[in-house]
Amino acid sequence: MGILEVKGVGKRFGGLQALGDVNLSVGENSVHAIIGPNGAGKSTLLNCLIGKLIPDTGSVMFDGQSVLGRKPHEICQMGISRVFQTPEVFGDLTVFENMLIPCFAKRDGAFRLHAFETIAQEKDVVEKAQVMLEDVNMQDKLHMTAASLSRGDKRRLEMAMCLVQDPKLLLLDEPTAGMARADTNNTIDLLKEIKDKRDITIAIIEHDMHVVFSLAERITVLAQGTPLVEDTPDNIKGHPKVREAYLGESHG
């Protein structure tokens, strides 16, 4: 059984059946890609996994527990971290503070009224944040505000903020959308490095086939709200159904 089990998930928006009957199993420590043409329901599926949407039917189990009806912060505390399409960091805060926040969240949980300690007193958290920032080579940017970073640096920071919490599952929502080829390759390298270094499951939603085929071990193709096929990258490449979904039926 996989770490993430999606069974019979359906979601309807008014007259639109965004997700039909989605079954998906993401194996532990694998890289699983979900691809599909525009409007296939990739984002809806992702939003069902992270607590932003509640599906009408079906179940989503993570690590043996249901995630349905839980709030985003609870799901994150269970061990699912999410990287956004456009990097989401705390723009007004310094890079160092950006890194401290997930460390505090990991140690203290969703809320703690620690109003009388100073940050410097929390040596374990400070040290953890510093080590992580050195890992991603940002130690010289500690006191810059996150908003002043380049897009690539923001992405690296966001990724590091997720990883410092030691998530079991990292969800990536089109991590290379709108990136130049060089940046895309950097992101691929970064993800490969992450995969090599730690025991982590990565689920990735992506448009860019280059990214998908260089990273994924399993691929699920989604079309019109239902999974078409699930297979290894090599088998997906030549699969007639996939070409049909992407190129339209007349060319199939």
Binding site: K71, H73, R82, D92, L93, I101, L113, H114, M161
Partner: peptide
């Protein structure tokens, strides 16, 4: 304090905050 930093995080990006647990 860390609490004050969290409050500034609320102002800066509440979405990221929720997805940070």
């Amino acid at each position: 304090s860390p609490f004050g930093m969290m409050l500034r995080a609320v102002k800066s990006n509440q979405q990221r905050m929720n997805y940070t647990g």
